[in-house]
């Protein structure tokens, strides 16, 4: 692939100083993510997958190496509002309606009122929540709330979408459905997506590139380019090609001694 690089990490290091001594959260991470790619980060807890995503979003600050986002430092990229971030919990404001929640980043970024409403309507339709704008978060199911939080991240024109286990708290049936929806959304919006998960099928189903990580110190053990076509119905997960990739991910996790302890 010769896509324009959107995220470039070179020899990235991050050490947290804690009371129990330093913790090596990321060690010598090298990775390039091209425009329009769907990249999944997979590994056991403590492997630094979330930390890496947070570094891209300038929520953590690396202690070594370089990281460029859209050719800028992560902090500059944050100030340029280059990405939308979706957390594990929807984190909608209970005192705002769904439309009000989606409007939140637009208000902060100072969009004109008419444009705000048009954008809210557009992204709510994109996540299949048209007509739910006037509801309050507690009136929606967990899956719908998470979709609203994705709409919130899509509302402004960031071309990068960072998702930290967005479906981790949902049951498998809802998760399957949302995975399918997410692929459609990715195809329509052509965003670059960074996606943290600890589910192998989820990673293989969604990604064009799977980054396998392992803990102590957090590092990349394998980067797998998916050979699956861009069109992916749910039953692609039963094809030999899919199982082949899933197998390689599992091997990568094992090689990282992820299951030793």
């Amino acid at each position: 692939m010769t896509a324009i690089p959107v995220i470039e990490a070179e020899a990235l290091d991050l050490t947290f100083q804690t009371n129990d001594g330093p913790i090596h959260a990321l060690k010598d991470v090298n990775l390039t993510i091209g425009k329009g790619e769907f990249v999944s980060f997979i590994g056991p807890s403590g492997c630094g997958k979330t930390t890496f995503l947070r570094c891209i979003a300038a929520l953590e600050h690396p202690t070594g190496g370089t990281l460029r986002v859209n050719g800028m430092t992560p902090d500059e990229a944050r100030q340029a509002r280059s990405y939308g971030y979706v957390f594990q919990a929807a984190g909608l404001y209970p005192w705002r309606t769904i439309a009000g929640n989606v409007k939140l980043p637009l208000e902060i970024m100072g969009y004109p009122r008419a444009e705000m409403n048009a954008r809210v309507e557009k992204v709510l339709e994109l996540v299949d929540l048209a007509g739910f704008g006037k509801k309050f978060p507690w009136q929606l199911s967990g899956g719908m709330q998470q979709r609203a939080s994705i709409a919130r991240a899509l509302a402004f024109d960031a071309d990068i979408l960072l998702m930290d286990e967005p479906f981790g708290a949902l049951d498998e049936i809802v998760r399957d459905h949302l995975n399918e929806e997410l692929l459609k959304l990715w195809a329509r919006t052509e965003k670059t997506i960074g996606f943290v998960t600890h589910s192998i099928p989820e990673a293989v189903y969604l990604s064009t590139k799977i980054v396998v990580m392992s803990p102590r110190p957090g590092r990349i053990t394998d980067v797998i380019e998916s050979t699956l076509p861009k069109e992916r119905p749910l039953d692609i997960r039963d094809t030999p090609e899919f199982l082949e990739i899933a197998h390689r991910v599992r091997e990568g996790l094992r090689a990282g001694h992820a299951y030793d302890e």
Partner: peptide, 16 residues
């Protein structure tokens, strides 16, 4: 922390 992180990704000001 998550709520504050979210606003940080929007580069929200202190008054926001």
């Amino acid at each position: 922390a998550m709520q504050l992180d979210l606003l940080s990704t929007y580069n929200a000001s202190g008054s926001d």
